[in-house]
Write a protein that binds this DNA or RNA. Structure first.
Length: 580
RNA sequence: GCGCCCGUAGCUCAGCGGAUCAGAGUAUUGGCCUCCGAAGCCAAGGGUCGUGGGUUCGAAUCCCGCCGGGCGCGCCA
């Protein structure tokens, strides 16, 4: 089993360090990739970092280290040239060609597994994302959370962790009541009733469609006398009017209210589930907020907070003393009307998740919820739970542009752009790629025209094209790729070929870093660079040359590039096409 | 007002547990198809990394102030 040359160099360097500076024997050894190739393939700055604690000249330390590295581990010279000390104390390493080329056979051998890690610190990671209200179709903001969360989950899994993907369904509470009410009112209207439609009701076309399906399933069952509904008084508080309508609906429908409620919920959930599945976003579990209430978990959790002295009554409500845990102020757990807040059930939810024993919880939230983090953390602490196991990553908004103009997005009005519309317009591949092209906490300008364009400007096509190009070379060649597995790689000695090979070798390390930083965007950047280097190579050199040995080696390199492109694209949920 | 995030080439952005970090794409200009896919490649110009201090042998990167932008500050979710 070939080991990564860098790992072997690190081991040799460690040995030398132990001898040169025993008291710093455990100092972390980090390598960097020099921009200029004259500085070797990778460099170590440890001598610079040790200069201060050792009170010695960094160049001298570097010199000593590089000498002893070779002296103590002579076999290292099979992999690298003697290390060079440069500048203030860099130790530059240059790999021998054979050591670089070895990665190609490793890629071909490991295939789809290349880049995956057997994480030394393997842990079970729970990632909760999207978790949209089931009160309307997913919109483009949810799309970013979905793409980011799904890519992140794939990345963490690839990096060797046990990953559980979960969608938290906000099926309890007022928003869901408003949807049920809206659906029912539309249903009544379809039956010819003149009913007051509340200003803050859900007005989208999808509500009409749910009402129509409700009618298909239960033609007259939910018809009631619309005259019994309260008419909103002019200038009245819209919130109060809405509550009055909901109360009236519950009264008029009796037990049937729950049926309407459930019908609307399940219809909406089915829509979201279907939308996400088409977007290649899957969940292991859909967790119902209502189930926490049904199990008494919300009540119990709040009682625990109170019992621990972290809650108090004021103005008829029950408050959590979150200000004692770094929050700006205290937060309401139970309202004056006796209902628990969303916050209360969310605390119960997080306590429940931690109770399942995951090593780490990752929550993907919209950036507008950032103020919410301290209170959730605080409540977990107050419950005596390990809040450090919760990581919240914020996903900023995506702003759509069409023809250089911002696409307007209303909230309740129903004219917002849905994820489904976006996917239909630009395709799943472009949508997935564009969504994760930026750091998640960075605002995203989503250029619809660019995403749609099948041109050189479009980074998705650029990467996919590289993949398809390799495939077409193999079609042209017509041989069996399996035959390349053991071919000699030493003909790959041009700077371009060695650089491309090095790029492939970086992939596992990139996966590790990206997973640690929860940063799938770096995969997208890497793929663009890899594709670019391949395109350059392809234009500069002919692959299918006459010389059989050289041809085989070049094909092996191409096959390895194809594999790494495919592995990276898979992490992003983007197709790696053989033809375009 | 307070809190969080962000200010890097004309534009969109990487780099931010300091050094070998001034980068990519795009736009502009000029080249490359009787030859494995031109959805591609090559080349040129373009930035005192918002600003002022501080820490350091060394700062785009760490700390503080200021300026500019986004978001949040509900008994909504």
């Amino acid at each position: 089993m070939a080991v990564d040359p860098k790992t072997e160099v690190e081991a040799a360097l460690r040995k030398a360090l132990t001898e040169v500076a025993p008291e710093q024997a455990r100092f972390p050894i980090a390598f960097e990739r020099p921009k200029q190739s004259e500085h070797g393939d990778f460099a170590c700055t440890i001598a610079l970092q040790l200069a201060k604690p050792l009170r010695r000249n960094p160049r001298e330390i570097a010199q000593k280290l590089s000498e002893r590295t070779v002296a103590l581990t002579p076999s290292i010279t099979e992999l690298i040239d003697p290390p060079q000390v440069a500048g203030p104390g860099f130790i530059n390493f240059r790999l021998k060609a054979g050591a670089k080329q070895a990665v190609i056979s490793r890629v071909l051998r490991e295939g789809a597994e290349f880049g995956s890690l057997r994480a030394a610190a393997r842990q079970s990671v729970h990632i909760e994302f999207v978790s949209a209200n089931p009160t309307g179709p997913l919109h483009v903001g949810h799309g970013r959370g979905a793409a980011y969360g799904a890519s992140l989950a794939a990345l963490l899994e690839f990096a060797g962790h046990d990953v559980t993907r979960e969608f938290y369904i906000n099926d309890a509470g007022r928003q869901m009541d408003i949807l049920a009410l809206s659906v029912w009112l539309r249903y009544l209207q379809a039956h010819g009733s003149v009913v007051p439609f509340p200003e803050d009701g859900y007005r989208g076309d999808y509500v009409l469609r749910i009402a129509a399906r409700l009618n298909d399933a239960h033609v007259t069952r939910f018809v009631r006398d619309a005259a019994a509904l309260p008419q909103p008084a002019a200038g009245a508080d819209p919130d109060a009017a809405l509550d009055a309508l909901i109360a009236a609906a519950k009264r008029l429908l009796g037990e049937d209210w729950r049926l309407v409620h459930r019908f609307a919920l399940e219809d909406m959930l089915a829509d979201q589930r279907d939308d996400l599945a088409q977007f290649r976003v899957e969940f292991d579990r859909w967790f119902s907020e209502q189930s926490l209430y049904d199990a008494g978990a919300v009540e119990r959790t709040v009682a625990r907070l109170a019992a621990a002295g972290h809650a108090y009554e004021k103005d008829g409500a029950l408050w959590f003393r979150s200000s004692a845990f770094g929050d700006e102020k205290d937060r309401v757990l139970r309202r004056e009307n006796g209902q628990f807040t969303y916050f209360a059930s969310d605390v119960a939810y997080h306590a429940e998740k931690l109770g399942r024993g995951y090593g780490q919880l990752v929550d993907v939230w919209g950036a507008d919820h950032h103020g919410y983090i301290p209170r959730v953390r605080g409540a977990l602490q107050a419950l005596g739970l390990d809040a450090t196991r919760l990581t919240v990553t914020l996903v900023q908004f995506a702003v759509l542009y069409r023809g250089g103009e911002k696409v307007a997005m209303g909230k309740r009005s129903g004219d917002f752009v849905t994820l489904r519309e976006l996917r239909e317009e630009v395709g799943n591949d472009a949508a997935r790629f564009f969504y994760v092209m930026r750091k998640s906490d960075q605002h995203l300008d989503f250029d619809l025209d660019l995403a749609k364009s099948e041109s050189q400007d479009n980074p998705v096509y650029y990467v996919q094209y590289a993949h398809a190009r390799v495939c077409s070379v193999f079609v042209q060649w017509g041989g069996d790729p399996a035959r390349l597995a053991g071919c000699a790689l030493d003909p790959l000695d041009s700077p371009r070929e060695l650089a491309l090979t090095q790029r492939l070798a970086e992939f596992p390390e990139l996966v590790q870093d990206a997973a640690r930083e929860l940063a799938p965007h770096s995969i997208a950047f890497y793929l663009r660079e890899l594709a670019g280097e391949f395109h350059s190579y392809y234009n500069a050199e002919r692959i299918l040359v006459e010389d059989p040995a050289q041809r085989a080696a070049r094909l092996a390199l191409c096959a390895a590039v194809r594999q790494v492109l495919a592995n990276g694209l898979a992490l992003l949920g983007v197709d790696a096409p053989e033809k375009m």
